[in-house]
Design a protein around this nucleic acid. Structure first.
Lengths: 224, 224
DNA sequence: GGAATCCAATACGTATACATTATTGCATGA
DNA sequence: TCATGCAATAATGTATACGTATTGGATTCC
């Protein structure tokens, strides 16, 4: 196990951790498509690991709902139809609303959110989709971090990752990213004005419109 | 790998699967207490397996929130304080309400629910708590099975298991099990009368009272 | 006596190796 | 031509083995 350079952040220098991050990334980026089989041996080779840590990462991802496992046959990337996605968005609406309600808006650094949104606005979504996605996630979860409900936040995070690939589908719509930017501005404004109800409304509408886009796009694409 | 007797149900004859079920059971029964360390070697020996499938099962349970993992140190049973438990019950309320709302009550076999509740009533909770718990779970999930929202149901199921040990804490209160029986009867009645709103009210109050009991009991017990 | 240090024992993380189960391709027959 | 059966192949599931990090305790020093 090559250990390079100086002392680095002690977070996750275990093989399983790297593997987890890598596979998540591969799904996000479309390198592994829904329904596709995940070959343990290939992955192990790519990551310079044996199949043991790879399998542990795959087990984890299966428990998270990102992969599906069939004994003696292996793992495949989870495939969601529009009903599945609606369920995910339903759960997100319910849980995120609770998160938002639990936040003390006077404590929120709205300028930081503004900053993140600006940076996101600079990224061309169709050119560097994974950068864009990451920035978009940062925006929402930076806000959620102010909530004193860590378990709810974790679950929202899980739902977010679960549908990550599908969310990335609409990034190629030119209008979409502009709308996202505007939606975020409305959210920031609500935060600034301490208006919880408006914040929830804005978040709901933002989420609904992305849901619409995803499901629209899903219908137009080949059976994923 | 000893393969006994005739063809059995093809469900999960893999070692990891057995291991998963076993560890879940050990937590439910209190054989593994919250905060306690989970020794991979011991478990492997008990289950006649190597540490490989055991570790996969542990990874899965960590992803489910039942265990906590610290690199190079191992797995411990997750410990929840009353705030954590409140979060779990909050999520259950939100998600279970959606499940109930999505059910076509005219399709529900209320007699079967009645049957399950009767059987549960026969089980002495303080003598065979795991039997009682299983039956109790059956009652609720048999109802949830009528919902067309499988992902939501899965998540509710996860939350159910996550707090399984803590839920078992109140089973030793003599009055509690009687109250559970009565609550279930009210739920069945609402199903029979196709009264969704009353069903939701009854479920909410049932859940709230178990939450109260759990948290009460948590306060009285040694720091678990 | 208490704190810091060093060492051995223990347990963890992962590589290698093997047994078992799917799967693929091809040959055979209807 | 298409279906069927079988053999070779590949991939999965798990046992064994090994290097390494952590931990508990004895020893030393203050």
């Amino acid at each position: 196990m090559a250990k390079t350079e100086t002392a680095r952040e002690p977070i996750e220098l275990t093989g399983v951790g790297r593997c987890l991050a890598q596979i998540r990334q591969m799904i996000l980026s479309g390198e592994l498509l829904p329904g596709q089989k995940v070959h343990q041996g290939e992955l192990a080779e790519q990551l310079n690991l044996s199949r043991i840590p790879v399998r542990e990462a795959l087990s984890t991802l299966q428990a998270e709902g990102v992969l599906v496992h069939k004994p003696n046959t292996g793992f495949t990337v989870a495939r969601f139809n529009s009903e599945d996605l609606s369920e995910i968005y339903l759960m997100r609406r319910l849980l995120e609303t609770e998160l938002l309600r639990s936040i003390d808006l006077t404590k929120v650094d709205a300028d930081e959110l503004f900053q993140i949104n600006c940076e996101m606005g600079e990224i061309p979504p169709s050119e560097s989709p994974e950068e864009y996605q990451k920035s978009n996630g940062q925006f929402h979860f930076r806000l959620f971090e102010y909530s004193p409900l860590p378990l709810v936040r974790n679950e929202v995070s899980r739902l977010w990752y679960m549908s990550g690939f599908y969310r990335s589908l609409y990034l190629y719509e030119v209008e979409a990213s502009k709308q996202v930017y505007v939606d975020h501005e409305r959210i920031i404004k609500a935060v600034r004005e301490n208006d919880i109800e408006e914040l929830i409304r804005a978040s709901d509408e933002h989420r609904s419109s992305t849901e619409r886009l995803v499901i629209q796009r899903l219908g137009r694409s080949r059976p994923i």
